[in-house]
Amino acid sequence: MPRHTTDKAVPAQRRSFTKAELQRLFDHIDDLIDREYAAGTKRWLPLFRDSVAFKVGYA
């Protein structure tokens, strides 16, 4: 297998999320779900589904 000779194989704009960034993203999505559920709207269910998909995708 060929190996990358530098750490700059991927541009900085396309770097992966750090653990802290992922945690903030997941917390924000969970807060959105809680607000919509508390407001009594039906928008919480698609948000919950998407939240689960994001978390499984990054697991």
Rank of each mutant, 00 (worst) to 15 (best):
I33R: 07
H28S: 12
R14C: 08
G57T: 06
L32S: 09
R35M: 06
M1I: 11
R24K: 15
K19Q: 14
L32R: 13
T41L: 01
A53V: 09
F17P: 15
Y58D: 06
I29Q: 15
D27P: 03
W44P: 01
W44G: 02
G57N: 05
L25V: 09
L22E: 10
T41M: 00
G57I: 01
K19E: 09
A38W: 03
D7M: 08
R15M: 06
W44Q: 03
F26L: 15
D27S: 13
L47F: 02
A59Y: 05
I33G: 04
R3C: 11
L22I: 09
Q13F: 04
A59M: 15
A39H: 08
R43H: 02
D30Y: 00
A53Y: 04
A9D: 08
V10E: 09
K55N: 12
K8S: 11
L45G: 00
L47K: 05
D30K: 14
A53S: 12
L32W: 03
G40V: 04
D50S: 10
A20I: 03
A38S: 13
K19W: 01
M1P: 13
P46V: 00
V10H: 05
K55G: 00
Q13E: 15
S16R: 15
A9E: 07
V10P: 04
A20G: 11
G40N: 04
F54L: 15
S16N: 09
E36V: 02
A38D: 12
I33M: 02
Y37H: 14
W44H: 10
Q23Y: 02
K19N: 12
A20D: 13
P11I: 06
H4Y: 06
R14G: 06
V52F: 05
F17I: 05
H28E: 10
R43D: 07
F26E: 09
D7R: 14
R49K: 14
A39C: 00
R35K: 13
D31P: 01
Y37D: 07
V52I: 10
Y58S: 12
